[in-house]
Nucleic acid binder design. Sequence first.
DNA 1: TAGATAAGTTAGCCGTGTCTAACTTTGGGA
DNA 2: TCCCAAAGTTAGACACGGCTAACTTATCTA
Lengths: 120, 120
Amino acid sequence: MAEDYVELIAELIESRGEARPVEIAERFGVKPPTVTKNISRLKAAGLVRREPYRAIFLTDAGRELAEACRRRHRIVVAFLLSLGIDEETAERDAEGIEHHVSTTTLEAFEHALLQSESGK
Amino acid sequence: MAEDYVELIAELIESRGEARPVEIAERFGVKPPTVTKNISRLKAAGLVRREPYRAIFLTDAGRELAEACRRRHRIVVAFLLSLGIDEETAERDAEGIEHHVSTTTLEAFEHALLQSESGK
DNA sequence: TAGATAAGTTAGCCGTGTCTAACTTTGGGA
DNA sequence: TCCCAAAGTTAGACACGGCTAACTTATCTA
Ligand SMILES: [Mn+2]
Ligand SMILES: [Mn+2]
Ligand SMILES: [Mn+2]
Ligand SMILES: [Mn+2]
């Protein structure tokens, strides 16, 4: 869960300028109290900094995790697309697959990606 | 959870002749009470048939699910192996990835597998 | 500069999946 | 045959991630 949250928070800060619980709730298809509770857990885990009723910020640890997750996400999606899978499905499946891809497998995906690009 | 359980149960019945909670607990690295509770849930879901203190059997629905899962598992592992990933990692990652692979993606994996075989 | 409305939180519930401690049943060997 | 160790179950606890209902805070607008 933490991974998806910090990833989204980083994206919201980048695109909207700030990360707000409403947006998070909408994107995850979840109700606001669920977001409140999960953000508290992220805060307890030291990934997020925030005061009640205000926007959400990432700590250094949170930002690092977010970057790693976003990179991994992009690689998994690109890899699935390179297999000829449609964008809709690639995006949806990647959202689950990304959390189970070891460094080894991620590297294999990157390598295969390079191959498919050169052979295009 | 159900998917991993019926998969293992089918494998144990095939190899050992019967599926016993101890074995399941060991394979999943979980304690016996956890298995008891989860088996109850499988029974409630109509995937498993069983009386207390006896071996576990799959219902028709359970057997069908198990077959689908085992097939999907094999394809995901074979696909990862075809990428040059070591068996250890392929098996471990597949165990998580399999639950997030749509039919579309599974077919893409199969297709890529055929390509890699012909191009070997 | 109020309200009204939107956003956010709190409290309390639920199901899942895990655990430990303590109990019961089963089945094989003396 | 009977007893004991292994297998299995029950009870009760906990964390996670979801929900609704009800409340509080912030903000925008008339
Ligand atoms: Mn994800
Ligand atoms: Mn993602
Ligand atoms: Mn699995
Ligand atoms: Mn599997």
